[in-house]
Amino acid sequence: MSTELAVKTEQLSRVYKTKKRETIALDRVDLEIPTGELFGLLGPNGAGKTTLIKILTTLLAPSGGRAWVAGIDVAQNPWEVRRHISMVSGGESSGYGLLTVEENLWMFTQFYGIDGKTAKTRIREMLEIVGLTDRAKTKIYHLSTGMRQKMNFVRGFLTNPQILFLDEPTLGLDVQTSHTLRAFIKDWVGKRLDKTVLLTTHYMHEAEELCNRVAIIHDGRILACDTPGNLKTRLQREVVFRLQVTAIANPERLFQDLRGVQRFSHAEVNGHTELNFILEDENALPPILTTIQQCHGELISLEKRAPTLEDVFISLVGRGFGEGDVSAGATEGEPQ
C-alpha cells in the first residue's frame, strides 16, 4: 500500500456474535484517506463509525478484509501502527481523579516515551491553546465535562501523532466548547501537511465545517464518499423544503405516498412537527399543504433551502439522522 495513504481499508468487515444473534457492524468497507486530509465519517448511532475506529486503532480485530494505517497492516502489526496514532473519544473519562490536569497529561506522554522537558513544554502550550492553563493544577475530578474533554483533546494531540482518530469528539459539549475544539482541529491539520484526522460525528454541521471529504455510513456500509460540496450537488435538481406545523399524527403515513415526494423526515421540535421534504420539483408542494390542512394541521413556517448533508443522508438512507427519528421514504430504500 502506498504510504501516501494514511488509511486504507479493503472489504473491511466486522461481525459481532452473541449466543442469540449475529450483528454486522461493518460490511465490506472500502476506504482511502490520503495523508493530510481531514476526513469525516458521518452516520447515526450504531452505523459502524466507532467499530471502524476501533479496528483502525488496533482495539478490535476485523472479521474480514484488511486495513492499513500509515501503510501498516493493523491486524498483522498492531504495535507498529500504535507508534503513528492517537485517539480522542467523546465522553471520555480517562485519567485519574486524584491527579491534576498536568499530571494526568504527563502520565500519558510517558506511555509514548516523551522526555519530561518536552512533555512539560507541550502540555503548557496546548493548555494555553484550549484555555485550560488556569486549571493545570486542578485535580481532574473537579473539572466540568467540557474542561475534561478539553484535557482529553490535549492528550490526543500531545504525542504529535501522524494520524489522529477523533470519535465524536464534541459529543455532549456546549456550543462554545465545541466551537473552540473544532477551531483547534482545523488549525492543527491546516498547519501540518503530514497530519491526517479521521473524525466521526453525527453532527452534520461539524462534518460540513471541518472535513475535506465525508463518507456517509449506515448499517455498516459506506453509502457515499465525497467532498461535502459534491455530496450536496447530488441533490441540486431536487428542491428541499422545511415545514413547521402544529403537531400532527403519523406523518409518515400521510406523506409517504404523495406524488413527487422523494424523501422526507420528521421530528418533534418544541411541541411542533418539523417536516423535511426532498421533492422532485415545486409542483409536489401543494398536495403536501392540502394534506396538512385535511388532517387539521396548521402551517407555522415554510422554508425552501439549499440542500445540507442531512438531506444527502435522507436521500441515501430514506430516513432522518436524529436518533429515534422515524421517517419514511416514498418507497423503501430507493427514490420514487
Binding site: T57, L59, W79, R82, S86, M87, F108, F111, G113, R155
Partner: peptide, 8 residues
C-alpha cells in the same frame, strides 16, 4: 483503551 493504543 489508551494503554492499548499507546506504543508501550
Amino acid at each position: 483503551e489508551l494503554y492499548i493504543i499507546a506504543p508501550t
